[in-house]
Write a protein that binds this DNA or RNA. Structure first.
Length: 968
RNA sequence: GCAGAGGUAGUCAAGUUUGGCCAACGACGCAGGACUUAGGAUCCUGUCCUUAGUGGUCCGAGGGUUCAAAUCCCUUCCUCUGCACCA
């Protein structure tokens, strides 16, 4: 066989030549439309990414081979700032980036072309299509390729937002977003795509508590508003110079850093002066909620970067407060230095406010003792704080002292108390990041209030209900996701859908200062694949893609004549596109990685439900989620410099070996660790199969010198193959690619091996079997399948061949033959089992068949079972005793019945067949084969032969399907 | 925190929905043999202990239901994943 690369090229060219990839509407009512969630254009992909894409192609090919007209379009998602960031890095010759690009095959010439974001997207679009998808032999309709930056795609997105608006699903309200002071909104995630530091930061919601002190308000920020009943004093950092900030008609005191942050979130802020921390020590202020005067004490743990730099003290539940208060009480110098009075110090007595499992009166004290923390500033205090916070949140209840909140769980009290205080004007909300975040540009990222943010209202109850109901009718895999997608839909709230700043994407149609963000422009797009070709081949221009145009072709609204007049698109073309949409939609399967479960898939479902609200037959039919290929020990062969590039892997292993690897290595619903040795073992498996098929090749005429008479074994192989293909069909109803692969590359291979081993050699049988086998290979390993198909001289190309269907397959399955062959195999393996126990025959093995009376007893048991009677040994014994034909064996019957297996379900039919078998005939005619297998002469003796040779009375061990044995 | 997934023999990994062909598919690894090639070979056999085909133990741990549990129920330990302007 020629090299993999040659074979791959040859057949890919062939498929293209005959237009296999073109998906056009026709008269076939069975259509299948499949997409995978298109990738974001952020650089090269690696071998892990091909897993899901390969599933999509294999499913598409399978559907094509089972009578479907298949549409499998592909595209890319370039919205966002990935390409912008990359362009910057290339421009400033960032070493890491350049190395990474070159490692993946990027040349200096390519680099020169990658000057601006758009050319970068074009560059990668080309790589994805040619080096990944075409290289892997995908049969996708390339004419329909689209990218989110294309002007026609953007017209589609604008239309989509008009429709959302029409359905009252766009709302505007203030929003607190992470944003760079220079670049605008940024995404904070661990991969740090937008930012250079702080990927693990979280947005925290603080409650700003206002402490009145004459005409000033000291502002403390807390994450635990429920602890206000435990406030006994207030902390300032004596070393910090705080600012006085005018806030509407109040004057607030906060740290300078906090003032800056507040100005991004609140109106009417103005810095009007400053005040030293140490000057405030010794003051008294009024605590919110409890309305009690508490003293202000100095403490160095107040960090001006965290919250407001001022802290309210709840020693009962805050370890920092407990230990600082304790330290202060013993620090006479400090008391003197800051002019604190003894009364003040004595007044600060911890108040027990929350009861928690595993803690006493003062949780803060307990944890400090448990962790043996001795002084303020101990780094262990961070963990102590987290622990108390967590335990309190889970198990805590408010004590009686907490007024109207007494008895509430902490979780609930937190919400209620915060609301009570914000309502009364004693508190306000404030958002901050849990750690410092720095933008790619070097500026600090802050939480900024955006007054007129647009949202898609996914919290809309009617929409959620409708979407959720539709999900029940869908085919969603894995079933776990089908079950909990409803929870995800309910959990969805409004989602900010547009943003400002440096960002590639579609302009928001109602306000062009905004750009549609990356999730919201990739929800309804599968339907656009049906239309994109007409824009790609310039049948229509983006200008002509007006609201009416999409209303007509997607929703079937408006008269074609009117739309034609408005857009200048001919009526014929409009009708053609509309018919295409009606033909291909709904989408049959959307396939994507597990990361899509909580964001993309829900919005995909929501948007379809929203936009096709009047045409429910257009709602998607299926979703399949797949898990990842991960790097070895969390890094994909990092020693070799990162993940293996796709073209290199294709070269090394061959595309089909990789495709088989993805399909078979594990369930799609679990992560797999990339391991080259395992990929190699799949390559070897394909080689074994190739060698076997080539040797069997009916066209070569070099083997097959047998009797050429159809025998049991020929019936057997066709039965087994039919059963395997039948199993494939039933597995593929839920897209069970792994089982399909298992049947084809393991079961059928093993069956063919056994057929040859057993002496099978009928050319007609082999021809029929190969046809089935090779066509079963075509969805997963199409190149090798085509090559073998052609080597065997079969007509046409296998990718267009139809797999035999259920009815035809069932008619070819001969259960009797399958069971007789199983009897033979069982006999052989029983004998080998005895060899294992170190028993070896000196001369020969005698095989005794089952006596008729035992079969009769089992028949009676079966008929009782079939009548629906419970298995009842004593009734069965009675019935057998009464049967005159069993008289001779009365003594053995009870013992035999006790040892009988329990049979249920489908096995009843099999058992019935087994009881009708002519064991003696079958085993006698297979005795030559058996002898060969066991390496000793085998002789078959009927148990019902009264004069049989049976020196050790072994024949009594026989039962139906399991002959008795005697070694001598 | 919220939500979800999972622990199966040396390794990877099926089986769990619907309890009974389960000592538990398969692959890899390992051992022995065949062949005779220098190929990441191929073919056969074995791979928990024990044994005339039996019996014992076994599916994270501990209980329970049942004639029967890897599978159902409860408790417990451990691991992993996703969480919204990141696709």
């Amino acid at each position: 066989m020629a090299s993999y690369r040659k074979i791959e090229d040859k057949w890919q060219r062939k498929w293209s030549e005959i237009g296999l990839e073109h998906a056009d509407r026709d008269e076939n009512p069975k259509k299948f439309m499949i997409v995978f969630a298109y990738p974001g254009v952020t650089g090269y992909l690696h071998v892990g990414h091909m897993r899901g894409y390969t599933y999509a192609d294999a499913i598409g090919r399978y559907k094509r081979m089972t009578g479907h007209n298949v549409l499998f379009p592909v595209g890319t998602h370039a919205t966002g700032n990935g390409a912008i960031t990359l362009a910057h890095k290339i421009a400033r010759k960032d070493k890491e980036t350049i190395d990474y690009l070159k490692r993946n095959g990027c040349t200096d010439g390519d680099l020169k072309k990658m000057k601006d974001p758009v050319s970068i997207v074009e560059f990668f679009n080309n790589i994805y299509v040619n080096d990944y998808w075409k290289r892997f032999g995908f049969i996708a309709d390339w004419r329909k390729f689209t990218c989110t930056l294309y002007p026609d795609y953007q017209k589609f997105i604008q239309w989509q937002f008009m429709k959302l608006n029409e359905n009252s699903l766009l709302i505007q309200k203030p929003y607190f977003a992470a944003a760079c002071t220079e670049c605008g909104p940024v995404a904070i995630d661990a991969s740090e795509t937008d930012i250079s530091k702080g990927g693990n930061a979280e947005t925290q919601e603080y409650t700003l508590l206002k402490f009145k002190c004459n005409d000033l308000f000291l502002i403390a920020a807390t994450l635990r508003p429920e602890t206000v009943y435990g406030q006994v004093n207030f902390w300032v950092n004596p070393d910090v110079e705080y600012v006085k900030m005018k806030k509407d008609d109040e004057t607030w005191i906060v740290s300078p850093q906090a003032a800056e942050k507040l100005m991004y979130q609140k109106d009417g802020c103005e810095i009007i002066g400053s005040i030293k921390g140490k000057d405030m020590a010794g003051w008294v202020c009024e605590a919110p909620m409890i309305r009690r005067n508490i003293p202000i004490f100095p403490a160095k743990f107040c960090d001006p970067d965290v919250g407001t730099g001022l802290v309210t003290s709840v020693p009962s539940d805050a370890p920092d407060d407990w230990i600082s208060l304790h330290a202060l009480k013993n620090d006479l110098n400090a008391i003197k230095e800051y002019g604190l009075t003894k009364e003040q110090i004595d007044s600060a007595v911890p108040v027990s406010i929350i009861s928690m499992d595993g803690y006493g009166e003062f949780p803060a004290k307990d944890i400090i003792e448990m962790m043996s923390i001795e002084a303020p500033g101990d780094p262990k205090l961070i963990d102590a704080k987290k622990q108390v916070y967590k335990d309190g949140h889970h198990t805590g209840r408010m004590k009686d002292i907490c007024g109207e909140f007494a008895g509430l769980r902490v979780e609930e009290a937190k919400e209620r108390m915060r609301t009570a205080m914000t309502d009364s004007g004693e508190a306000e909300l404030f958002y901050d990041l849990s750690e410092e975040v720095i933008c790619r540009c070097g500026s600090r990222v802050m939480i900024r209030r955006v007054d007129d943010q647009w949202f898609i209202d996914y919290s809309n109850e009617e929409l959620t209900k409708r979407t959720s109901e539709h999900c029940r009718k869908m085919e969603i895999n894995p079933v776990e996701y089908q079950n909990n997608v409803h929870g995800v839909l309910n959990w969805f709230r409004e989602r900010a859908c547009v943003r400002q700043g440096n960002w590639l994407g579609t302009k928001f149609p109602f306000d062009e200062r905004w750009t549609v963000e990356a999730i919201s422009d990739s929800t309804l797009y599968p339907v656009y694949y049906i239309i994109s070709m007409y824009a790609n081949n310039r049948t229509i221009s983006p200008d002509q893609m007006t609201e009416s145009f999409f209303d007509h072709v997607i929703l079937g609204k408006k008269e074609p004549a009117a739309v034609s007049k408005e857009t200048g698109i001919s009526k014929d073309i409009l009708e053609k596109i509309r018919k295409d949409v009606e033909y291909w939609y709904p989408l049959d399967l959307n396939l994507g990685g597990k990361e899509h479960m909580t964001v993309h898939f829900p919005t995909f479902l929501f948007n379809h439900a929203a936009i096709f609200s009047e045409d429910r037959k257009m709602l998607p039919r299926g979703i399949m989620v797949h898990w990842y290929i991960t790097g070895k020990k969390s890094k994909i062969s990092k020693s070799k410099g990162g993940a293996q590039p796709i073209p290199g892997a294709a070269e090394e292993f061959g595309v089909d070996a990789l495709r088989l690897y993805y399909a078979h290595v594990a369930s799609p619903f679990s992560d797999v660790e990339w391991d080259e040795d395992i990929v190699m073992s799949y390559r070897q498996r394909l080689e074994k199969i190739t060698v076997m098929v080539e040797e069997l090749n009916p066209a070569s005429g070099k083997t097959l010198k047998g009797t050429e008479k159809t025998s049991d074994i020929d019936v057997w192989i066709i039965s087994m193959f039919s059963q395997s293909v039948l199993n494939m069909h039933s597995a593929m109803e839920r897209f069970g690619l792994r089982q399909m692969a298992s049947e084809t590359y393991f079961e059928m291979f093993g069956q063919m091996k056994r057929y040859l081993h057993r002496g099978g050699c009928d050319p007609h049988t082999i021809r029929d079997a190969l046809k089935m086998w090779i066509s079963a290979m075509a969805p997963i390993t199409p190149h090798i399948a085509e090559e073998l198909w052609s080597v065997c001289g079969f007509e046409g190309i296998v990718s267009k061949h139809q797999l035999p269907q259920d009815k035809c397959l069932r008619s070819k399955i001969d259960l009797d033959v399958i069971i007789s062959e199983k009897l033979i195999d069982n006999t052989v393996s029983d004998i080998l089992q005895l060899y294992k126990a170190n028993m070896r025959p000196k001369n020969r093995v005698i095989i005794y068949t089952t006596p008729e009376w035992k079969k009769e007893v089992e028949r009676k048991a079966l008929s009782m079972l079939k009548k629906g009677e419970r298995r009842d040994a004593s009734a069965l014994i009675k019935e057998c005793m009464a049967d005159p034909s069993l008289q001779a064996h009365r003594k053995d019957i009870p013992d035999f019945i006790k040892k009988m297996d329990i049979i249920t379900g489908d096995r009843i039919i099999e058992k019935e067949k087994l009881l009708e078998l002519d064991e003696y005939g079958i085993l006698s005619s297979a005795s030559a084969f058996i002898s060969k297998e066991i390496g000793t002469e085998a002789e078959v003796v009927s148990a019902d032969d009264p004069g049989r040779y049976d020196p050790r009375s072994r024949s009594g061990n026989a039962k139906p399907g399991r002959p008795a044995l005697y070694f001598e």
